[in-house]
Design a protein around this nucleic acid. Sequence first.
DNA 1: ACGTTGACCTGTGTGC
DNA 2: TGCACACAGGTCAACG
Length: 274
Amino acid sequence: MPELPEVETIRRGLAATVLGKTITGAEVLTAKIIKAPAPDTFSRLAAGKRIEAIKRSGKYLLLELSEDYTMVIHLRMTGQLNYCPPDTPVRNSTVVIFRLDDGYDLRFVEPRGFGVLYLVPTADLGTVPGLNRLGPEPFSPEFTVDYLADIVRGRKAKIKSLLLDQNLIAGIGNIYADESLFRAGIHPERTAASLAPAEIERLYHAIRTEIAAGIEYRGTSVQSYFDVDGRKGSYQEHLKVYQQTGQPCPNCGAPIQKIKVGGRGTHYCPECQR
DNA sequence: ACGTTGACCTGTGTGC
DNA sequence: TGCACACAGGTCAACG
């Protein structure tokens, strides 16, 4: 489900609900999503730890716990976190239930089983795959027009594929990549190296505009994205190309096209994006 | 190093 | 209705 705006919305929801609470126990229903420590020791290690801070890095959620531990959660495509009373019926795609000292549950629901969970000493965060290699986020000080120019230089990859590379820019996924390229007027199959300086500058501002709008509208709910309280975001009401195949382009009226780029469904306006 | 492709899973929607 | 198939918000390993 979640790209940067959705994960940030979830982070804020967690800050409003579970921050400061203590995990009294953890029930592991699907062991395979727990990558560290060994699933049979996960519950024992989690129990008794207090949630002291809730951070986000790219699409990773980082729950800083007492005793210098950090829980790392990646929701991948369909993961959800639900904060709910313990008598709420347990959905069968629930993979872990955390019991909290306020009497509520925090439940990790993941129908496809792609999501991952790590509970590691904070000093070992570098051992979490992907997390240690993330590029700058769209709103970090290191993400500048010059940085974007640097990473596109000499690259033969299609610009859309490059935008999805978390090692180059952290947090953009399929929705915001398509929307950013539309806003910048750039065809998704252009090679990165072919972008002119003015296009790089437009793309830079488009990315930041789209990510900021996504956060403002509390994320995009196209299929299964819900925040910790089960609410949908509303940015799907403002999408201009993503999942708008055949709809008129809001700029020129031409029908939005769908193609595959790097194996991902890709939506664009054939008139406005060159 | 870079770029592309397939695999990982289950649920849902579409077309026959 | 039933069935087969394509596709899904992400990442990683394997290959050329």
